[in-house]
Design a protein around this nucleic acid. Structure first.
Ligand SMILES: NC(=O)c1ccc[n+]([C@@H]2O[C@H](COP(=O)([O-])OP(=O)(O)OC[C@H]3O[C@@H](n4cnc5c(N)ncnc54)[C@H](O)[C@@H]3O)[C@@H](O)[C@H]2O)c1
Ligand SMILES: NC(=O)c1ccc[n+]([C@@H]2O[C@H](COP(=O)([O-])OP(=O)(O)OC[C@H]3O[C@@H](n4cnc5c(N)ncnc54)[C@H](O)[C@@H]3O)[C@@H](O)[C@H]2O)c1
Lengths: 231, 231
DNA sequence: ATGACTTTGTGAACGCTTGCACAAAGTCGC
DNA sequence: GCGACTTTGTGCAAGCGTTCACAAAGTCAT
């Protein structure tokens, strides 16, 4: 029951970030009836190099068969166990606005190791309403009479995010997924991941601008090109 | 007008990923009336170390004053220019479901260098309806009589994502933000960033499980503990 | 003006991540 | 059975990113 990686040493953070990609690809293959797959093929479906895939998997143990490849079902089960998806983690979404409702309506949670067990808002107009089969409560009610949750998803406006995070931590939540822009300051031992749309778009914009500048300046490597043409 | 970094050499990818964080912190400081800030303070508000902040900024040029810090407005302008946010990039959202509507309703675009200029769906019930002041069109109409777009946001179900991406690339879009789970295969020169909720949650679950296992095993650091108990 | 102090900018060291090369270990045809 | 072939798993080297240590360059009080 203890993941193999605890015996073999720790899994690098970069690898952890890719395991979900592999699991997703494997799940798709399984649904298509594929029972076995080579690292080359699985890697291309995951968007990584095959050497990287094999090194990543080597951190969990040897579940491949040389000359053949990996058993889809077995490997998926091993990765799922490594990620802790053999159980259903209880999730709360705080902030039932546009984004919170979209997430609550999203069906991709339950099949992947998570279950939304509570929805929270602080607007009296919203509290008490039923969204996707769950009655929206307040954070105070969640603390006193709500179900236990281990993962908190924050979809409130940015100014409320820090206070919400503090309250979630106070009731024992150690894992947070924050959609509100801005950096949360939290005690050690609490894991926060931020998803920021504006950040993603700005990174795209950077590369887009680079492409355009590369075209407009004839010789991007020449020091004279940009000062001449634009300045 | 050409970013300083083109003269000083290229900006590391990891730095590009953090520039939006700095810009966000600077914008907040500016709104609070702060005119000058030291790297230590700005770093803590961005969630990074001050040495990292300074090294990141050093790739764009020297805009700080030793002994004082950075001029908030000037630095924000420099980062905005570096990210290509001096113009408003036209964005199309494809897939007007729950998530697409939430994104369309989100006001955080316009102030940050982006403007939604088109909304697309393929459901006849949805096409022609007005969402947030824009009439929903089809991809075909976007190609023929729609406005020029440079960034495409994909919020369709996963099975449609690849086809949508191909069509967007065909009409000249080179930057994609994909919310559908799965890996998109696209020609070189096209920039794709994927945002996957399940992936983020699974990474959180991994660490959550690690915490729980660390508690259940009495002495995680002892070499004897795991070999003894398991092997 | 000067000296003490503050803060930036950066070369160098360190650690993590990726990619390469290849041995180990299996399958498959005959 | 055996040889040819396929594919995995991994030591090693190269590259990238982060952190450290410190000189350079400014401010400020006097
Ligand atoms: N909507 C998007 O597409 C989008 C995209 C990127 C980021 N975001 C971010 O996600 C967050 C939510 O976006 P949205 O569009 O859903 O906003 P919204 O205004 O529609 O919804 C916010 C909800 O949070 C609730 N709320 C406010 N303070 C609260 C508190 N202290 N406790 C509990 N609930 C509280 C409000 O009552 C409201 O229902 C914002 O921070 C936004 O910046 C949204
Ligand atoms: N809703 C969420 O919170 C959430 C979270 C994470 C990921 N996602 C992903 O985002 C995507 C959208 O989620 P959703 O909940 O909004 O789904 P949805 O079913 O509510 O909306 C999908 C929309 O896309 C449209 N569509 C389908 N095929 C299309 C095509 N070929 N061209 C144009 N439009 C097309 C549909 O008509 C529909 O309006 C899904 O891939 C989902 O997995 C959603």
């Amino acid at each position: 029951m203890v993941p193999e990686s605890l015996r073999r040493g720790c899994v690098p953070e970069a690898t952890v970030g890719r395991l979900p990609l592999y699991l997703r690809a494997l799940t798709g293959l399984h649904d298509q009836g594929v029972t076995s797959i080579a690292s080359e093929e699985l890697a291309s479906r995951s968007g990584v190099r095959s050497t990287q895939l094999r090194k990543d998997l080597s951190h969990l143990g040897s579940y491949g068969v040389r000359g053949v490849g990996y058993d889809v079902e077995l490997l998926a089960a091993q990765i799922a166990q490594e990620l802790g998806l053999t159980q259903q983690w209880p999730v709360v979404i705080v902030g039932m606005g546009n984004l919170g409702r979209a997430l609550a309506a999203y069906g991709g949670f339950s099949g992947r190791g998570f279950r939304i067990v509570a929805l929270v808002d602080d607007d009296p107009e919203v509290v008490g309403t039923v969204v996707e089969g769950l009655t929206v409560t307040t954070l105070a009610d969640l603390a006193t009479k709500g179900p236990t949750v281990t993962i908190g998803v924050i979809t409130t406006p940015a100014p409320a995010a820090q206070a919400v995070a503090d309250e979630l931590v106070a009731i024992g939540v150690r894992s947070l997924l924050n959609f509100a822009p801005g950096h949360l300051v939290l005690p050690d031992g609490v894991d926060v991941r931020g998803v920021d749309l504006a950040t993603e778009l700005q990174i795209l914009a950077f590369h887009e601008q680079r492409r355009l500048l590369a075209i407009s300046t004839h010789d991007p490597l020449s020091p004279a090109a940009d000062t001449e043409a634009i300045g």
